[in-house]
């Protein structure tokens, strides 16, 4: 039986570079120095990396739950793509958290072996999306905030955070564009979609207050030139949201303030279900290698 040359071409093993989205074997931080910058507390830096890493990890999990459920194939691809980008950011940040902590924990130890009170993400990322409008509303507020944050993080004194920020800006620019596009389509589309999009914005809005509530770790590291001061992101966030909601003919809810937050380890019941799903297999196979 003779087969085509194409078959031989498939056995070329040098095409790994086309494998995008952080799943390849190349280290996206290759060449970036990993020593802690002078005068930076390792425990603080570890805590900060967990905050930003957990935001990405948990939202990625919620997006993974949409796989095979999207309204169109193009959205199937977009949602998976955004989930992959955030998973890639989470991996880099958790790895950096482990390095800064100095106790030998890697990305998987931190993702799979911590319990709920040790997670540091904002509560917005935990909630389940009742429909596609909620997915979009959450992604809109999250990516608008995170783009502003990563953009400033790109000038961090920590070279690893600076590299993560610079890489993430390109990714999250697309996430925000995707979410804004659907916010406008749904807001402007039909009476039903307008109502659902407004309900979704109203539902996620109270959770946006956490974005700007400063945590002591963030403030200390901001003073040291490593972290971004949360309150500094508010004006960009407000300007973008006002513009997008206006074009989408949606009402902007009133600003909110918050007390204790996910940054302090305060979480809702939904996190328990997320962790049960995410961690079950890893914990059920002691000594397993994957």
């Amino acid at each position: 039986m003779s087969f085509d040359d194409a078959y031989q071409a498939l056995t070329d093993h040098d095409d790994d570079a086309r494998w995008a989205y952080g799943t390849g074997f190349a280290d996206p931080l290759a060449g970036v120095p990993t020593a802690l910058p002078d005068g930076v507390d390792g425990a603080d830096l570890a805590a900060y990396c967990l905050m930003l890493g957990d935001d990405a990890l948990i939202l990625s999990h919620r997006l993974q739950q949409w796989v095979t459920r999207a309204p169109e194939l193009e959205d199937e691809m977009a949602i998976a793509n955004i989930g992959l980008d955030l998973l890639g950011q989470a991996r880099l940040l958790l790895t950096r958290a482990g390095e800064a902590e100095g106790a030998g924990r890697g990305e998987d130890d931190l993702a799979y072996l911590r319990d709920a009170p040790d997670f540091r993400h904002v509560r917005l990322v935990e909630r389940e999306d009742p429909d596609f409008g909620h997915l979009i509303a959450r992604l809109l507020v999250f990516s608008t905030w995170r783009l502003a944050l990563l953009d400033r993080l790109a000038t961090s004194r920590d070279p690893v955070l600076a590299a993560i920020g610079a890489k993430g800006v390109k990714e999250v620019t697309y996430h925000r564009e995707y979410a804004a596009g659907w916010t406008v389509r749904l807001g402007d589309g039909t009476d039903l979609s307008h109502r659902r999009m407004q309900d979704a914005i109203d539902a996620v809005w109270p959770l946006t207050g956490e974005f700007f509530a400063p945590h002591d770790v963030e403030l200390r590291l901001a003073t040291a030139g490593v972290a971004v001061e949360p309150a500094s992101l508010r004006s960009e966030f407000d300007a973008v949201l006002t513009e997008v909601l206006h074009v989408a003919t949606l009402d902007q809810p009133a600003p909110v303030t918050v007390g204790r937050t996910g940054r302090d380890g305060e979480h809702g019941d939904e996190l328990a279900a997320i962790l049960a799903e995410m961690q079950e297999l890893a914990r059920a196979t002691p000594g397993g290698v994957w």
Binding site: W19, A80, D108, G288, W290
Partner: peptide, 19 residues
């Protein structure tokens, strides 16, 4: 299996494959 993948690397590989 994406949400239950036992390591973050396998999770990324699987998510990219399904995409």
């Amino acid at each position: 299996w994406i949400t239950r993948a036992p390591s973050l690397r396998r999770k990324a590989i699987l998510l990219a494959k399904v995409q």
